[in-house]
């Protein structure tokens, strides 16, 4: 790994100021995605700006009809939070299934969101729940946030500060995980919200996406059987040594049914 300057600010303002004018700098959160990238020399930042000293980003709070989770909250803290378990138990369960205990102890919501890994679990929750990503500059709707393979709407130097999840009536996530990494080969989050049913799929394509045919079917009847006979085309799906595109297309149907069943 190439060496870099290391900074440890204690406020968002300080972190953003440190980033200004440093084209080669990166924010470092829990490091569970970024450090493996650096170890493979896939990125060579000149500066790492560690966010772990910023206490203001560690808060979980209920704000009206939404649950607002700070960017620095670890997956383990989301999984164990009494507020998350009470208001969106499906989100707590999703967080408790990310990676493994050691990864959940370090990895953070903001880091995962900013990394925009196409196989990460959180993007499914963000899109299915219609969440809003808060940054130091603005608020970005779920629909606009994930733009492609490891690409998001974040501008260079823009910092994710929190994610606001509207509290659904019911929601659950089902994942077919990679055996070693626990990343989603296919993960499906189904949410019954006040504005309708939303089905979001991660792991299968270049970025998280919704399946409108499933949403329409579940609007007529929110039971697993409603999804029988609905197929998803394998055309634009990922195929690799772990799973072909056709297998992923099949898994979307299976995981969606399991998620709906878990909502009952």
């Amino acid at each position: 790994m190439k060496d870099f300057q290391f900074h440890r600010p204690t406020t968002v303002a300080e972190a953003v100021a440190l980033m200004a004018g440093k084209d080669g700098a990166k924010f470092l959160s829990g490091g569970q995605s970024l450090l493996p990238v650096l170890k493979l020399d896939l990125a060579e930042p000149t500066d790492l700006i560690s966010l772990t000293g910023i206490a203001e980003l560690r808060e979980i709070r209920v704000d009206g009809q939404a649950l607002v989770i700070g960017a620095l909250v670890t997956h383990d803290a989301v999984a164990r939070s009494a507020d998350v378990r009470k208001h969106i138990p499906g989100l707590a369960a999703l967080a408790g299934g990310i990676g493994d205990p050691q990864v959940r102890n370090r990895g953070t919501l903001g880091g995962s969101v900013a990394h925009a890994d196409p196989s990460a679990d959180y993007p499914a929750a963000i899109l299915a729940l219609g969440a809003t990503v808060h940054t130091n500059l603005r608020k970005i709707d779920a629909e606009e946030f994930f733009t492609g393979l490891f690409e998001s709407a974040l501008a260079p130097g823009e910092l994710v500060t929190a994610v606001s999840f509207p509290i659904p009536k019911r929601a659950a996530y089902a994942k077919f995980a990679h055996r070693a990494s626990k990343y989603a080969l296919v993960g499906v989050m189904v949410a019954l919200t006040s504005s309708g049913v939303r089905v979001a799929v991660t792991g299968a394509g270049a970025k998280v996406f919704r399946v409108s045919a499933m949403e329409d079917a579940l609007t007529k009847g929110f039971v697993p059987e409603a999804l029988s006979g609905i197929t998803v085309s394998a055309d634009d799906l990922n195929g690799d040594a772990e799973a072909s595109a056709e297998f992923r297309a099949h898994l979307i149907g299976v995981m969606a049914k399991r998620a709906v069943a878990a909502c009952q």
């Binding site: 290391f6 490091g31 383990d76 050691q102 990864v103 102890n105 370090r106 070693a180």
Partner: peptide, 26 residues
């Protein structure tokens, strides 16, 4: 050394962490 096997697990403030995936300065 790729953050998967857990042989390098230590406790940091009581939490198990893969020490191959944490900077010493952190």
């Amino acid at each position: 050394d790729t953050s998967q096997c857990g042989a390098c697990t230590v406790h940091v403030d009581g939490h198990s962490v893969k020490s191959c995936t944490m900077l010493a300065v952190e």
